[in-house]
């Protein structure tokens, strides 16, 4: 009995850990898409910030500095996407794909430049688990939910914050309006370009938190292509969650569970490769079952031009 609970607790805890980067990235993607810019570059944003975080922490010896460099890198790459798609009217999906390749090639290039070789970076100071007294004592849920890295607690706070910002504040109203009908927002005297820049910039910062959690929360080092499709799964979570913070977080938890299950399942019964396929297969099923019915912001994907 105890063993069963123990396994369940482990599974839950692992689910939270796997879902956290997805939730950060999905919330980031939400700001971008709600402003009308598709951000398929979430994968790359996470990757470059996972790397930048490790470099920052490596050079300074401080995890917090690492978090700062991660966010700066995520923001910088997001701004590249913003400049290309909003100002220069590049195709958003293609620009996002380029961001992913840029992050992949860029981290490869910089691994050699900074650490002297590719592969895996040296270990750095990360965000280790912090036990929250009392809450962590709740049976079953406590240890899984409240004995986690600081970044996980930040994620808990960000879901309701995102909801509030998006649905209760003037900023959120304008952002949603921009994604639905930039013309309407423009004629109401709101600067469409600025709103879209905000949306994409926020996606960079939030995806960076996800990337930092991968390299400094789950691991304490960077390995090449360590995001491994998480940015795309986060996008699927965003669609499945109907561009709503709570929905996206719920979908991300589902995908996180699939990943956690992959690690926990007995490998002697099912070949490893099939277990590893599971999250991706699940994403496919979810998209096929629900993706078509989801209604994206009406103007997403289309550049806005005034003349």
């Amino acid at each position: 009995m105890e063993e069963l609970f123990g396994n369940f607790g482990q599974l839950l805890s692992s689910t939270i850990r796997n879902a956290t980067p997805l939730i950060f990235a999905a919330l980031g993607g939400m700001f971008s898409e709600r402003s009308g810019v598709v951000n398929i570059g979430l994968e790359g944003l996470m990757l470059i910030s996972a790397f930048a975080g490790v470099v920052g922490a490596f050079l300074s010896g401080s995890a917090l500095v690492g978090l700062g460099t991660a966010m700066a890198a995520g923001l910088a790459f997001a701004l590249i996407h913003a400049v290309m798609t909003i100002t220069f009217e590049a195709d958003q999906i293609i620009s996002g794909t380029a961001i992913n390749l840029l992050a992949l090639g860029g981290t490869g290039f910089l691994m050699v430049e900074v650490f002297g070789s590719g592969g895996t970076s040296p270990n750095v100071q990360g965000f280790s688990a912090v036990r929250i007294p009392l809450l962590a004592d709740i049976p079953l849920l406590g240890p899984a939910l409240f004995n986690q890295s600081l970044l996980v607690y930040l994620m808990y706070a960000l879901v309701p914050t995102t909801y509030f910002v998006l649905f209760k504040t003037p900023f959120g109203l304008r952002l949603r309006g921009t994604g639905e009908s930039p013309e309407a927002v423009d004629t109401a005297g709101v600067n469409v370009f600025r709103m879209r820049y905000y949306g994409v910039a926020l996606s960079g910062i939030l995806a960076a938190l996800g990337g930092a959690y991968l390299s400094m929360g789950i691991l304490s080092a960077f390995t090449e292509n360590m995001t491994n499709g998480r940015g795309f799964i986060a996008l699927a979570a965003l669609i499945f969650g109907r561009w709503h913070p709570v929905g996206a977080a719920g979908a991300a938890l589902l995908f996180g569970f699939a990943q956690a299950f992959t690690f926990q399942a007995p490998q002697d019964v099912v070949p490893l490769e099939f277990l590893q396929m599971l999250p991706y297969v699940l994403t496919l099923i979810v998209l096929a079952g629900f993706g078509g019915r989801a209604i994206a912001p009406a103007a997403v994907g289309k550049p806005y031009r005034k003349e």
Partner: peptide, 17 residues
């Protein structure tokens, strides 16, 4: 230039909330 998915009041105050 109205946003179909928002309410009348939301559309009216948008930008001058």
């Amino acid at each position: 230039t109205l946003i179909p998915r928002l309410t009348v009041a939301e559309n009216i105050v948008l930008g001058a909330e």
